[in-house]
Design a protein around this nucleic acid. Structure first.
Lengths: 157, 157
DNA sequence: CTTGACTCGGATAACTCTTGTCCGAATAGA
DNA sequence: TCTATTCGGACAAGAGTTATCCGAGTCAAG
């Protein structure tokens, strides 16, 4: 089981966008994080489709967050990039084979699927409890101030 | 993000093995669940490597659980098949690009990684709380008795 | 108003990982 | 001793992710 690597980039971009305030181009975000520009554009498109960022075209264009940082959860970003489908998908094994249970007797979900869904809900609930604003607060607390100031200036330039 | 489909099969196999008591061959398990025999063998190998099942060779051989059903958690099976690595892997983006944070200043983990790890722990904790015995109890409660009896007899035959 | 350059967006290949299959080594019973 | 049956690891095919490019649209300046 592996989450799309783009999730990490997208979260870093959300943090940067919130700190910048003004529109930032995909090229600048890619350079700041030293990642593939073309591929990062794809992740930003996904964020745009999900309505988390708004893109501005033309000169002095770029991406801006559509909501305040404390109104965007980590789960929002994860679902925008990685999709909303749970990692486990029940294939109804009990309805197959020589001892198959007839479909009309399967009103309750398979116990295995139930356990997986419960775990999936716990996972999502944990991600929903953290917002971009929380991440920013942690970043501001743990990174050297001079680097923070430099990054803010670099983003604006 | 997608979990290996073999996890579902492996869990069904553990339930079946616990109900059987005697060794069951991979071929019988595959026929019971109507899945690819060759591929199911791969999953059973992984369970064997993890020490959850013991294989017996030769005639009248097969697989048996090494522990009681209430001593095997769903998490044990998931980690045996899908691996123990978390879905999210931090690539230390903060240490890259023009505003890179020097490694010696990165004693605390990245806030993004921390949020992901917390969610991952919640997920695993939820899976650890459910045992194969719990699954069996649910199965016995929700499936028609005649099918249960038939399956037990079919496994023994 | 015209021009120009810069932006994002979707369609297009390369690659990695999962899925699926096969045959050989080892074993228990006759 | 022999035979039938078992599991185990090595071997291809497919799907999904990763990475890239070029065109449509837009804003700003001249």
């Amino acid at each position: 089981m592996k989450m799309s690597g783009g999730v990490e980039w997208a979260l870093h971009c959300c943090v940067a966008l919130s700190e910048a305030g003004a529109p930032v181009t995909a090229a600048k975000l890619a350079e700041l994080h030293d990642v593939s520009q073309s591929y990062l554009a794809k992740q930003l498109q996904l964020l745009s489709r999900a309505g988390l960022v708004r893109s501005t075209l033309g000169q002095s264009g770029g991406y801006v967050l559509t909501r305040a940082a404390n109104e965007i959860t980590v789960l929002d970003v994860v679902e925008a990039i990685d999709g909303v489908q749970p990692a486990f998908r029940c294939t109804e094994v009990r309805q197959r084979g020589p001892m198959a249970v007839p479909p009309e007797r399967c009103d309750t979900p398979c116990p295995i699927a139930r356990a997986m869904d419960s775990a999936d809900r716990a996972w999502r609930e944990s991600l929903r409890a953290v917002t971009i604003a929380d991440l920013i607060a942690d970043v501001n607390r743990t990174t050297p101030p001079e680097i923070l100031a430099g990054a803010r200036e670099w983003l604006g330039a």
